[in-house]
């Protein structure tokens, strides 16, 4: 079934924060209200897009996430999107992803390729 959300992208406030000890999980904690508005469900894979950078993260719902977005835990995925001007929070676009979630090795490879 075609889901409307698949065709749309949503602007979101992304907060980078410590959430758990695990740093290798490609996950974004979305505010349940924001997710509902955007037609995104728990377990979906979404692309978080900022400029020309994109990571695919698995959606979990969390009521302490910002009302108009979500939290990406401190990790290489968060670092890949952030810069020092917007180290703790930034605006990005969220859309339903095509493939699976990003892997640490994928991002590491991008970092290593830029000599």
């Amino acid at each position: 079934m075609l889901r409307i959300a698949r065709l749309l992208k949503f602007e979101a406030l992304i907060i980078v924060a410590r959430h758990s000890a695990e740093q290798k999980e490609a996950v974004i904690y979305l505010n349940p209200e924001f997710a509902k508005r955007s037609g995104i469900k728990e377990g979906d894979i979404v692309s978080v897009v900022k400029g020309d950078r994109r990571v695919n993260l698995k959606v979990k719902l969390l009521d302490t996430a910002p009302e108009d977005g979500g939290i990406i835990p401190n990790s290489i995925f968060a670092s890949y999107l952030s810069d020092f001007q917007n180290f703790k929070s930034f605006r990005a676009y969220i859309e339903i992803a095509e493939g699976g979630e990003s892997k640490v090795e994928d991002i590491l490879k991008i970092v290593m390729d830029k000599k």
Binding site: Q23, R53, N74, S75, I76, S79, Y80, L81, S82, D83, F84, F87, L108, I110, V111, M112, K114, K115
Partner: peptide, 15 residues
């Protein structure tokens, strides 16, 4: 630093 620094910084680590 590869995990914790922003990409525009960490990519320069390769040099």
């Amino acid at each position: 630093p590869v995990s914790s620094l922003p990409y525009d910084v960490s990519r320069n680590l390769m040099a």
